[in-house]
């Protein structure tokens, strides 16, 4: 996976859609994921997936403070740029 907002966001949208049993097209990436019924456990699963995929260590409250796919993607991009 190469960093870059579009790629990270596409990847993340697909992960979230899989957890929510929806298609990626159905996810509005600007809305809080909780609006789609994403609970705290799925948020934990998503952040573990991000850590495994990108080799990052995320602050535990990251999905609480950045509840949308767009917000979370921006954070990941920032962390990936820092890690370069």
């Amino acid at each position: 996976m190469t960093p870059g907002t579009t790629d990270v966001r596409t990847w993340l949208t697909e992960r979230v859609a899989t957890y929510l049993r929806r298609t990626p097209e159905e996810i509005d990436t600007s809305l809080p994921m909780t609006d789609y019924g994403l609970d705290s456990l799925t948020a934990l699963a998503v952040s573990a997936d991000i850590e495994d995929e990108f080799g990052l260590v995320l602050p535990p409250e990251i999905t609480w403070d950045n509840p949308s796919v767009d917000g979370l993607s921006r954070i990941i991009d920032g962390l990936l740029a820092e890690a370069k």
Partner: peptide, 10 residues
């Protein structure tokens, strides 16, 4: 445990 789906542990 490693194989458990996290989302089903609520």
């Amino acid at each position: 445990c490693a194989a458990l789906p996290m989302t089903e542990l609520g």
